[in-house]
Write a protein that binds this DNA or RNA. Structure first.
Lengths: 346, 346
DNA sequence: AATATAAAGTTAATCGTTTAAGCAAAGCAA
DNA sequence: TTGCTTTGCTTAAACGATTAACTTTATATT
């Protein structure tokens, strides 16, 4: 009923003591500060009676710690990031932290804005899925000694902590899987991005072909601008099918590319996997429910998110000294979309 | 380079004035506070030089306003909520607010925890997609005069502001659509929930059948526990197909139910729409990419989110006096999964 | 008895900002 | 000269909590 929030001062008044004493008691520092037993219990009781809730703001202002983590992702409405966000949220809560999420739209300037806003809000640290052209921003955070952990994407040239999937290996596995299943004309659609994880996915694909003695065709690899996925993917697929050695298998570098690509493939009336085998990064219901379930690379989202939080919290509490750079394995979930190719029996 | 954050005090020192003056200038109160022209520009210049960023914490502590909105949803990893979250995030940012998102898992106690944490963080207000059994919590917020706007779900018995889809009409439209397309045995799978929006969806379905002179069968409506979706949906579908008048069309009350249901339907080898027509609430890629694209009820997510933020901001700035209760229409997107039933020609 | 130690609590500064109230100097009118 | 207004700026309290440093009283030690 009491309109005003109850503060430490109110408790002090009722107990007839100073605010300092109340603070000591409520922070469990009675021993160090030699507070009397009776008065301590009295204070605690009054606090309970008044349903005292300490002010986060005041605490933070004093301590410089907000117990808040900034999570910077590309887009919360993308299932991959939404799942990451959920894991981070839960794990952070377990550690007494609150998360503020911001979407950068894979855009350097938005990403910078976000960082500024969050720094201004004095988040204690960041978990960042870096976006295109944000290398300088990460360098800057490093220089300013702002604690952060990179998630899923990292910059090999910057010495930062990170938790990431082994994108190279994942892609390599996907390529090898397709070759083993007798596909010989394997295409890949990736983002037109300088980000290292994308380069690694591409390199993994290329090495897989090379190591398996498949002569890659230059038109089998297409890079699509992130700003125009649908038109880019459409053009890429059309061209990959029109060349002299048309593809019989296609690897999508991301979930969004796959969704866009599958739409187009449906429209073209192409049959998966008989006309075209499919493997994709990412995971979602759509891969399960497609008429021909899609083989995909399942990233260890829960572990990635949990580890990132764990690492960051350790940094924040100075329990982490040496740099942590963690790579995790993606799992290839084999479904019908890439099953062994039927060879023509003449 | 300067290690410490620059405060108003630093500026005051350099300018040789008091902190009060700096504050006046930086808040554009030079006129009211009769600050000299020269000194004002000097202060502004120094602030720019030092790249001064006011401390949100201090401001908030003083003003009691954090310019933060708490968004309480069931689960950020669910596409519907993820999309809502994205819209709310963007719209809030446009208004100078930061959003803290929390997932309640459709669970009253988690929801209460969330509210407590966020109130303690002194968010200025809430946007809430209420969860099961949270009616009392909403009443409580109302009593405490904590500003909030309900989103998508509301309680008819509590006088609150809300922005919601017209669930009844949406469901009614879906039912009518199926009847018009010659389906006569129409089932519905809903959540076993007391929440009004779910009751409305059910009522809409029932009224649609009644108004179209379809005699409903008691086993055509199944309520599934939210804690065991997969098993519940499986049992529901099995039973709806096993009865004497098996269903030829099925309406899913939510996206999650549909995903679960479609999985099972696939496993059973049931053909959509020939064996069973499908309509579902929600929207997602999976509905587009299913072998037979799914007819769905498209909720005006962007408008819902934007309006909720707009309303809340108005409340927070006292520009809203009378209660706002807004219902928006869902759009029925007709796809192949509910196309006109082939009637047997003998 | 003199002094040291311990016990129990208070004072006041601090975090960074806002803002009501105050003060001094100058301008103006009578 | 006296008094009033205006201008330009400062003082200090407040928001709510923490904490180093201090005071006071009681008890123990030599």
């Amino acid at each position: 009923m009491s309109k005003t929030k109850v503060s430490i001062k109110d408790i002090a008044q009722r107990a007839g003591v100073s605010t300092a004493l109340v603070s000591y008691v409520l922070n469990g520092k009675e021993k160090e500060s030699r507070v009397g037993q009776e008065i301590a219990t009295k204070v605690r009781q009054i606090a309970a009676e008044l349903n005292y809730q300490p002010s986060h703001l005041a605490k933070s202002l004093r301590s410089g710690k907000t117990h808040t983590i900034g999570l910077v992702i590309a887009d919360i409405s993308n299932p991959f990031f939404a799942n990451i966000a959920r894991v981070v949220e839960d794990e952070a809560k377990r550690n007494g932290y609150t998360v503020i999420i911001g979407s950068s739209d894979e855009n350097a300037s938005k990403s910078q804005d976000l960082l500024d806003v969050l720094i201004n809000r004095q988040v204690d640290g960041f978990i960042i899925v870096s976006s295109e052209d944000s290398e300088e921003q990460i360098r800057c955070l490093n220089d300013k000694h702002i604690p952060f952990v990179l998630l899923d994407r990292y910059f090999p040239d910057i010495p930062t902590d990170f938790v990431s999937t082994d994108h190279y290996k994942a892609s390599y596995d996907a390529g090898t899987h397709l070759v083993r299943n007798r596909y010989k004309h394997i295409g890949m659609i990736a983002y037109d991005s300088q980000l290292f994880h994308m380069q690694e996915r591409i390199r993994g694909y290329q090495d897989a072909l090379r190591d398996n003695h498949v002569q890659a065709h230059e038109h089998w690899l297409k890079r699509v601008k992130i700003s125009a996925i649908d038109t880019g993917v459409k053009a890429a697929i059309d061209s990959m099918l029109a060349i002299d050695q048309p593809i019989d298998a296609l690897l999508f570098a991301t979930y969004s590319l796959a969704v866009s690509g599958l739409k187009h493939i449906n429209k073209l009336g192409i049959k998966v996997p008989d006309d075209l085998a499919i493997v994709s990064f990412g995971q979602a219901e759509v891969f399960e429910l497609y008429y021909c379930p899609i083989t995909y690379l399942k990233q260890p989202i829960v572990l990635l998110g949990q580890t990132a939080v764990e690492l960051l919290v350790k940094k924040l509490t100075h329990k982490l000294t040496e740099p942590a750079q963690i790579l995790m394995k993606a799992e290839l979930i084999e479904r019908a979309s890439s099953k062994t190719k039927k060879t023509l029996t003449i």
